[in-house]
Computed example of a mutant assay.
Amino acid sequence: MNTVIWDGKSLSDLLTIEFLASAVGNVLAAIAILIVGFIVGGWVRRRLVGLGGKHAHLDITLFNFLGNVARYIVIGFAFLFVLNTFGVQTTSFVAVIGAAGLAIGLALQGTLSNVAAGVMIVFFRPIKIGEFVEVNGQMGTIKDITLNFIELASVNNVQIIIPNSQVWGNTIVNYSSYDTRRAEWTFGVGYGANLQLAEQTIRDTIMADERSMTAPEPFFQVNNLNASSVDFLVRVWCKSSDYFAYQADMKRKVKEALDAAGVDIPFPTRTIVQVEG
């Protein structure tokens, strides 16, 4: 068998060189496509997140989610281009991915339920990063919202992770949703106390605080006649950000003011009668 020679190289050598050159070219092209895909995906994400950050009325959480989705879509198309570069039929590949996705979906129902709930949270926005909430019996400030879970920082600055399925499927108490809150106290005075003096002392003490709001109108009324005390129910509005400190401060100030005014504050007592046998 005769071997064809060109410039000192056999045909098999030329074919090998051509194959290697083609393979190296495909690899370099694939690397270039992936690099461009990651760069473009990151740029698209930054643009979307930046758009949300420029406008205070837009929810940055939603734009973070959309940015991540856009980035993964761009990277996904980059991988499809890479497969085309190596001659892989993407139509059949997509079908395989669909079948695998169905199998994985059945195996990961719990995880996918968290993702589905995360999508609902992001789009309907019942909670936002930075808000103080109570979810599934846990209370804290929202630090992060992902497609799988939300992260809370408790009042003691302890990290709390709650799966999204337990967030969307439960009652959410959002203490930061409204700008104002109504603080409420019950102050008891003795039956022998001057009720008019007691009410005026409580009113003057609380309304003298700059955090107390005059509108809506405050409420000061005798609410209950207990076994050993006459109870005043007090309701005053304040800013949500002041609520906890304001409510605690008023308890002490009112107690000190009632003491200074000579108004008796009763406390449980027990009388023991000893009968001589």
Rank of each mutant, 00 (worst) to 15 (best):
Q109K: 15
G67M: 01
K239I: 13
I33V: 15
L112T: 15
A198N: 09
L195H: 03
A117V: 06
E276G: 10
E134I: 10
V222Q: 09
V263K: 01
T90K: 07
G130A: 05
R211K: 08
N170M: 06
V133W: 07
N223P: 01
V27S: 04
Q159K: 10
F123R: 13
S228N: 12
L147P: 05
I150T: 04
R46W: 09
T171I: 09
D144S: 02
A183Q: 04
I73F: 13
S10P: 13
V222E: 12
Q200R: 11
L14G: 13
V69Y: 04
I104R: 08
R125I: 12
N2K: 14
F86V: 00
R46P: 15
T85M: 01
R252Y: 09
F79H: 05
T146R: 02
F86Y: 14
T91F: 14
S154K: 02
N156H: 05
A100D: 11
D249W: 10
R203T: 10
D242M: 14
W168N: 06
D144Q: 11
V167E: 05
Q159D: 08
K255T: 14
D13L: 10
T186Q: 06
D259W: 04
V155Y: 01
T269K: 13
A21L: 08
V94E: 02
K143T: 00
K54P: 01
T146D: 09
L34W: 09
L197H: 01
N2L: 12
Q200V: 06
P268N: 11
V273Y: 06
A260V: 00
T90L: 09
F244T: 14
N68A: 14
A78W: 02
T205F: 13
V189Q: 03
T171N: 07
G67E: 02
A227T: 15
W168F: 04
Y191M: 05
S240E: 08
W185M: 01
L14P: 07
S176E: 07
P163S: 06
A257P: 09
N226P: 06
D7S: 14
L106Y: 07
P126Y: 09
K54W: 07
L62A: 13
V275F: 07
G277S: 04
I33C: 03
G188F: 13
K251L: 13
G140D: 05
F86G: 00
I202A: 01
L20T: 14
Y175P: 01
F79I: 04
A248V: 13
S229T: 14
F219V: 07
N156T: 12
S12Q: 12
T271I: 07
S154R: 03
K239T: 11
T171P: 10
Q274E: 11
I127M: 05
A260M: 00
Y175R: 04
A78L: 08
V74F: 08
L28Y: 01
S22H: 03
S240D: 11
D231I: 15
T85P: 00
G262H: 13
M120L: 15
M213Q: 12
A30L: 07
G25M: 00
V158E: 15
A32W: 01
V4K: 06
R45G: 02
W6K: 09
G140W: 10
V158Y: 08
I73S: 03
M139Y: 02
A245Y: 12
